[in-house]
Simulated assay, not measured.
Amino acid sequence: MNLAITPCWNAPEWDAAVNRLSGHPQQLWGWGQTKADHGWRTERLFLKQNGETVGCAQILIRRLPMPFRALVYVPRGPACRAEDARQVLEAVAQYARESYAATVLSIEPDWDADSDVVEQVRAAGFRPTDNTILIPRTLILDLSRTEEELLGEMSKKHRQYIRKSGREELDFREVTREELTACLSVYKETAERAGFGIHEDAYYLDIFDNLGGASPVYAAFQGQTMVAFLWLSASASTAFELYGGMTEEGERLRANYALKWLAIRSMKERGVQRYDFNGLLNDGVSKFKMGWAKHENLLMGTWDKPLSPLYPAYATAMPLARRGLSTARSAVKTLRSTALPALRAKAESLRAGRAQAPTRQG
C-alpha cells in the first residue's frame, strides 16, 4: 500500500493517535518538545491510507559534522500495527531522505526481539546495529495481572522489603512541581555517589512541564525531607521509568521498594497495560530491578536504514566517537571519586589551619 505522510502540528491530536495505536511515551508530544528544547529538531508524522491514520512516527533530527548531513532517529517508535510496519518504515525513510538528506534513519521500536515484525523491519531495508541509545534488555511487567500475581512473581526479599519500608515512618505520594527541586537535589546526590552524569535542571523541569500528566513523579518523605524519588513517563498503554534516586537515609530505610510498588500500583489503576523498568545491565541497580519478576524481556534493539553512500563511514565513526565519550565520562568519574575528595580534604585542612593561626595586629 502507498501511504501519505501528513505532518502534525496539534498536540492533543497527536497524543490521541499515539495512544490509540498503543504507542510508547517517548512518542508523546511532550517528549519530542523537550528534545526540541534541548538540541534536536522534532517532527511528528501521520502515515495515512485512504485518509485513515495507520501509523505515526515522532522523529528527532540532529545535524551531523561534515561530510555527513543528518541523523534521523525514532525513539521507541513508530507506533503502528505489526502488519503495517514495513510500509510505515519505508515511508518514514523516504521522508527522512528527501526532507533532511539524512545519512541514516535509526529506530529503536517498542517491539519484542522474537516477534514476527522483525522480518518486516529487515524487509524495509533496516539492519541491526550496536550504536544503541535505549537498552533493549529490560523487564516489563504485565499490569493486567492482579496485585497478588505481581507480588507472587517477586523475590521473597522484595516482598519483605516492601513491607519493611512500608512500616517505616515514611510518607509515599506523588510530588508537585514545587517539590521537583528536592527530587533534583536527591538525584544529584545519587549521581555523585554512583558516578554518572546528569542534565541541567532545566531539562528535567521541561520534561515535567511538557509531558504534564504523562510524567508522574513519586517520592518517599521522612517528615518533610525527601529520601527517594521515582520519575516515570506514561502513555495509555506503557509506563516507562525515566529517573530515580535515594539519599543514604533512604537507602538505609529501603524506601525504594515501597516507592516502586506505589508507582506500579498507580500505573495499574490508570489502566496502563505495561510497566517497563527501562533497561537491565550487569550492575546493582539491575539486580534490584530483576527481583521484581522471574523473567526478562528483550526488545528488538537498534536498527539503521542507510540513506546515503556515506553510511559505512558513519557506522565506523559512531562507535569511535562514543568510545571517546565513554573515556571522558570514565575520567570524570575517577576525578569525582579520587581527586575531588582529596582536594576537598586539603581545602578543609587549610581552612582549619587558618582558623587556628594567631591574628596579626597592627
Rank of each mutant, 00 (worst) to 15 (best):
E83Y: 00
R76N: 13
Y203E: 06
L232A: 03
G279W: 08
L64E: 09
E241H: 09
P7Y: 10
S144P: 00
A234R: 01
A357D: 09
P65N: 10
L299F: 14
A352K: 15
F277P: 01
L281G: 09
R127N: 05
E90P: 04
T103M: 07
P358Y: 09
Y73W: 14
R173M: 02
T176A: 09
Y73A: 06
W29H: 10
E13M: 11
R254K: 15
T238I: 12
L320Q: 13
R322D: 13
S266D: 14
L211F: 08
D15V: 02
C183D: 02
I5S: 05
L105E: 05
T34G: 01
E169A: 11
P358R: 08
Q361M: 06
A70L: 01
G223I: 03
I107V: 15
E43V: 06
F46N: 07
Q273A: 15
G195M: 11
R351E: 14
P78G: 07
P75I: 06
S165H: 07
A263Y: 07
E348V: 00
R81C: 15
R145K: 15
A355I: 05
L151P: 01
E348Y: 00
N282Q: 14
A194W: 08
T247D: 12
D116K: 00
G284C: 04
P78C: 02
K346Y: 10
E168N: 13
S165W: 09
G279F: 01
P65L: 09
G213M: 04
W111E: 15
E249T: 13
F277D: 03
T302Q: 07
Y73E: 00
F221A: 01
L71S: 04
P319N: 08
F221I: 03
Q94L: 09
S237C: 08
H24D: 13
S330R: 15
A234P: 01
R86D: 01
G152S: 08
D206C: 09
G279R: 04
D206Q: 09
Y314C: 06
Q120H: 11
Y218F: 14
I135P: 01
H158M: 05
W29T: 02
A313Q: 10
L64Y: 05
L141D: 04
P25E: 06
E249P: 01
L340Y: 10
G77M: 02
P67E: 11
G39Q: 04
P12L: 11
A96D: 06
A16F: 05
T42M: 14
R360T: 10
A123N: 12
E296F: 02
R354S: 12
E189D: 11
C8V: 14
L150W: 09
V118F: 07
F229V: 09
E189Y: 09
V72D: 05
G125L: 02
G223P: 06
G223F: 06
R193I: 05
S308E: 01
G284Y: 00
Y73L: 04
D171M: 06
P109W: 05
R354A: 12
S155P: 00
Y218V: 03
E108S: 01
D209R: 11
G23M: 08
A236F: 03
T238C: 11
N210R: 15
R254A: 10
I162V: 11
K294R: 15
L64C: 01
A255F: 02
L64T: 03
Q26S: 14
R145P: 03
L141T: 04
S266Q: 13
S215R: 08
G55M: 02
A317P: 10
V117E: 10
E241S: 07
L281P: 00
D112Y: 11
W40A: 03
L143A: 08
L47Q: 00
P136C: 05
A123R: 11
T132W: 13
